[in-house]
Nucleic acid binder design. Structure first.
Lengths: 338, 338
DNA sequence: TTGTATGCGTTATCAT
DNA sequence: ATGATAACGCATACAA
């Protein structure tokens, strides 16, 4: 002790104005040379917060989710918050128990990364409503209308519709839509594709909307799946995929079938990930503004925690980044993957 | 309160044996219907732990590091620990301050993911020694000999040497070694390549060891870099890369130059990542056993925290997974990327 | 088997 | 401007 009471030390730590400059200096000096550090647990107990946010995601090794987690963590830390990560997998029970685990740990908020947390059957979303009763619940790229639930997302429907319209208007009417997720976002993308078809009067496209059930890591399996579709008589001159990896597989399919890209087969992916650049030719892909929606999410969160009223939902437009797998007129300027 | 003292409640929570079954039942019942939850902060203060591990990594959106973080988090949670993630970037100052941040948060241990935390100048590693004075420090795929520092890693040197030897013994002596990291692991891989060259009497290969300084996300830039090397007169019939993305760029270079793979150019990557499967043809790549070393790391950590003596270092062998970019004799069985 | 009482290291309220 | 002291909610040593 530097001849001063515990209360004054606390005031120095928290930068209270009502402490004489030389007293502050003396205390800081002792703290320095004694290597003193405030006990975070005691602090947490007193303040009822340890400035920690729970990040839930189904699989942080997924290309897209990993980037999202990265951006979120960066922004949170810049805002003075710690990030506790929890990968839940895709089973509802695990999502629930993981969320509970975080709430018991008394995080200040939970961020649900990716739209896999919004179930199609609304009764299954009760766990989200419950959580919102305790802390602000943040949704990245998903939408859920409920008090204390905040969303930051890309207009996947609009972006996918625009991508499809671009292809259709360039003269291709037999487009295979390939998807592998029925999450909130997955449903929106599909709806966007359908919307484009309707707008252009392409009504009989059901057979051209194909759901791939296997692992998305099995690129060759996806390629074979596309090959089978063709062999079974499906005719298509373009593939729009809900994810770059599906699109990559489509490019491999074309190569192994001797189809020229984009002359005989156009391909559009989604996410504008590193995979788009690894492809040959490089993939045209929809950029869904992951960095922006992540930043906005954290901004909304911190505002909410500070008691500021924040918009319950922020939507960003997508952007089609054209590269070598399409030959669209009036191409958007190509940019590096984010 | 269910007619019982606070001490008994605590005993019930912690599963003490000395509490009558019907008392326990009564307490649990009240806890259930009142929605009681133990306060994690108070618990942390009393026990001096919140069962939390700090995970440090330079960039959790990196393909390799993201997978590592994923495996580690899975194993930690299975062991009853929470994971607090902190992405530091590549600057030493930020690594130090991030580590301090975690220690002040009173994590039970820190895990340094990837070998970017071991500096070439040993004086710069003092921050690791300091940390080891407070908590066990775990290193994933790096080596550092110091009390209370534990390592779990792949024998990158041996794996890379074996990969190079395989190529050389198949008759290719002009191999371009392409790398983009001088981390501990990066240095070991380079040493492995050099060792193979020495073993086979290929002494004049300095010009064939090329360091790429640009962003690893710039696939086309890497491809162009390789093209320049060729244009400047460098002759090579194989490329061994320290990372799958560099290898992917080499494959693109070959395609755009009209070189047949593997007849005119063989390519070997490293990490056996999803990129290896996205390539056409698929990449031969070194599997560095990320899942195993991650599991071992957490096993060692939990043992240490439980007071069990654990080996300071565990090394796993690498494994060459042969695919379409090489035509090696006696091929190892091809498997899916992990 | 159960209850009482103390300590954990802060923050915050109230005096001084 | 500073000190004394009461929470904060649990675990635990000790008493019963």
């Amino acid at each position: 002790m530097a001849g001063v009471s515990i209360a004054t030390v606390s005031r120095v730590i928290n930068g209270s104005a009502s402490v004489r400059p030389d007293t502050r200096r003396r205390v800081l000096e002792v703290m320095e040379q004694s290597g003193y550090t405030p006990n975070a647990f005691a602090r947490g107990l007193g303040l009822n917060t340890m400035q920690t946010i729970g990040i839930l995601c189904t699989d942080s090794s997924d290309l897209y989710l990993a980037k999202a987690v990265y951006y979120i963590e960066q922004n949170l830390r810049a805002g003075g918050y710690h990030s506790i990560l929890c990968c839940t997998g895709y089973r509802l029970e695990n999502k629930k128990s993981s969320l509970d685990l975080l709430l018991r740990q008394k995080v200040d908020s939970v961020i649900l990364v990716g739209s896999n947390f919004i179930e199609a059957d609304d009764a299954d979303n009760q766990y989200i409503r419950d959580a919102a009763g305790q802390v602000p619940v943040m949704l990245l790229n998903a939408y859920f209308d409920h008090p204390n639930v905040f969303c930051s997302l890309c207009d996947d429907l609009g972006a996918m519709r625009q991508a499809a319209l671009s292809l259709i208007d360039s003269g291709i009417s037999d487009i295979l839509y390939l998807y592998n997720s029925r999450s909130y976002s997955g449903r929106k993308k599909l709806a966007g594709f359908r919307s484009a078809c309707e707008l252009r009067g392409l009504s009989e496209t059901d057979g051209l909307q194909q759901y791939y059930t296997g692992s998305s890591a099995d690129v060759d399996g996806i390629r074979a799946f596309i090959g089978r579709l063709h062999d079974e008589g499906l005719s298509f001159h373009a593939v729009i995929a809900s994810d770059d990896i599906l699109a990559t597989a489509a490019v491999k399919y074309a190569r192994l079938s001797g189809l020229k890209i984009p002359e005989e087969l156009s391909v559009i992916g989604y996410n504008n990930s590193i995979l788009a650049l690894c492809c040959e030719p490089e993939l045209t892909s929809v950029d869904n503004r992951l960095e922006e929606i992540s930043r906005q999410l954290v901004k909304t969160l911190i505002g909410t925690l500070n008691g500021t009223a924040m918009p319950p939902s922020t939507v960003f437009p997508g952007r089609l980044v054209q590269r070598g797998t399409t030959a669209l007129p009036d191409p958007v300027q190509s940019t590096a993957a984010s």
